[in-house]
Computed example of a mutant assay.
Amino acid sequence: MYENKYLSIYHDIVSKIRQGHWKPYDKLPSENELAEQYETSRETIRKALNLLSEHGYIQKMKGKGSIVLDVGKYDFPVSGLVSFKELAQKMKTPAKTIVHELEVIKPGEYLKKHLHVTNKDEIWKVVRSRKIDGEHIILDKDFFHKKFVPVLTRAICEDSIYEYIENKLKLKISFAKKEMFVDKVTDEDRKYLDLNGYDHVVVVKNFVYLDDASLFQFTESRHRLDKFRFVDFARRNH
């Protein structure tokens, strides 16, 4: 019960920060005030505040209490290999995928280089925008080797391609290599994204492999600058 209590307090405060009850740089109530509000001990409140600090929601200032940080960005793990559906469920934020293109193409020089394919191969091209909190802020351009993914439908692409690949095709997605850089917006970005005046996007290239080391997917994921921070966890080896 003790652990459940501090976790429920943590989630409640996160929800209030996300909803704007406390704005960036606001000071949270004191430990005593929060303990009274949540009808619990200061130790339980302290555990909840430590968790908030660890996850980047607050900064604990000695002698000044806890200051709310700007969380108007969404966390997308650089080193992780997860689907947008899984991320949306984790964020607990209204999200929707819109499929703009779904077709089988022959690879040009760019795809032959990035997906290690030849003129004889057929490639699924999937262009999708991701709508979060009412704004289109990610453009995903996915390319799948048709040898590994023979069939794709609009319904699959609107839901989760990874879920389909793993549960229906019984393929094991194993690892990915990633590149990240900032790029100028393109006409395609302007067409599908709500750019809000930004003239650059953050681009993450993903080269995704199956457990037999077969490269089956190349993705170019284009993110609006102001809405995303890319997070990773690193520990220094001693």
Rank of each mutant, 00 (worst) to 15 (best):
E3Q: 14
K5H: 14
Y6C: 05
S8N: 12
H11K: 06
S15M: 03
K16D: 09
W22P: 10
K23N: 11
P24Y: 09
E31Q: 12
E33R: 10
E36A: 14
Q37R: 14
A48W: 02
S53V: 04
H55T: 13
G63T: 08
S66L: 00
V68K: 02
V71R: 15
V71L: 11
G72C: 06
D75G: 09
F76P: 05
P77F: 00
L87P: 07
L87I: 07
Q89G: 04
Q89D: 10
K90E: 07
A95H: 02
V99H: 08
H100E: 01
L102E: 10
I105A: 05
L111N: 01
L111W: 02
V117Q: 01
N119A: 04
K120L: 06
K125H: 02
V127S: 03
V127D: 06
K131S: 05
I132G: 02
I132F: 08
I132W: 06
H136S: 12
I137V: 15
L139G: 15
D142N: 15
H145K: 12
V149E: 07
P150M: 00
L152V: 06
R154V: 13
C157T: 05
E158P: 05
D159L: 01
Y162H: 14
Y164L: 00
Y164W: 07
I165W: 06
E166A: 01
E166R: 01
N167S: 12
K168P: 02
L169V: 03
K172E: 14
K178G: 11
D183I: 11
D187R: 03
E188D: 04
K191M: 00
L193F: 02
D194C: 00
G197H: 03
V201G: 10
V201T: 14
V201W: 10
V204Y: 05
F207L: 02
Y209T: 08
D212H: 11
F216E: 05
F216Q: 06
Q217A: 10
R224Y: 06
L225A: 09
D226K: 01
K227M: 02
D232K: 08
A234W: 14
R236E: 13
N237G: 13
